[in-house]
Design a protein around this nucleic acid. Structure first.
Lengths: 115, 115
DNA sequence: AATACATTTGCATAATGGCACAAACGTGAA
DNA sequence: TTCACGTTTGTGCCATTATGCAAATGTATT
């Protein structure tokens, strides 16, 4: 009858579920930018990304910055242009770590059958 | 030199990166609610969750509804109370699917070494 | 039916976020 | 230096959202 058994199995979750990262992925335009960059498989400049986005170039620039600050994208300046790429390894590792933490905490999906 | 090789490797990403889900995880209070429910490992009523949240009970009720509509939580009514639990299996599967899709698209983290 | 309790919903307010436009900044070339 | 180009930043507008409080709803008990 341990109704509130606060085990610390999900201790890592607090460090993984960073609102900044999810906030960055909470906007449709940013998601489509991310997908575009992932499909591109090559660094894209701000202007190139903007060609695929229905919003102003300045807005795209801000979206890219938000994704970069969230650790989802990486930026590299080459001359006048700034090229963005997906931090795929970081992103993949983070997502899997979150999945592992949740799984280890709530093993068999012990959902609403209790009590 | 295929600068814009639009391969469809990440085709599944569009169906996985749903803004509603990430928007739900983009709020600090909702994240802490989720972590609390995960640590609880047992269904929690709205009032129980509210005891751990600095905001009003009505706000907690709304947060729980948002997480439920995002497919992150599950609700079950028992008498006067509503018990929430984490849809851990769904959540874990979704996160791993996203990770797999990104990984298969951008294999070795082919980041900023191109060109 | 009347009451008590848990939750949800209506409403107003303050904060945040996305957007376009214009101006500023940085960089390379003439 | 002057210029053109790519990007970022300032600003204002509008939509969305988080919040608290009060009222309404639902549910079991008396």
């Amino acid at each position: 009858m341990n109704k509130l058994n606060e085990n610390d199995c999900c201790s890592g979750l607090e460090d993984l579920l960073l609102p900044r990262m999810f906030k960055a992925l909470g906007d449709p335009n940013r998601v489509s930018i991310l997908i575009h960059l992932a499909e591109c498989c090559a660094p894209c400049s701000v202007s190139e990304v903007a060609d695929f986005c229905p919003v102003d170039l300045s807005v795209v620039s801000r979206h890219l910055a938000i994704l970069r600050e969230a650790g989802i994208l990486e930026a590299q300046k080459r001359g006048k242009e700034v090229y963005y790429t997906v931090c795929s390894q970081t992103l993949v590792d983070t997502l899997r770590s979150i999945a592992d933490a949740i799984e280890s905490c709530c093993p068999v999906d012990a959902n609403l059958e209790g009590n």
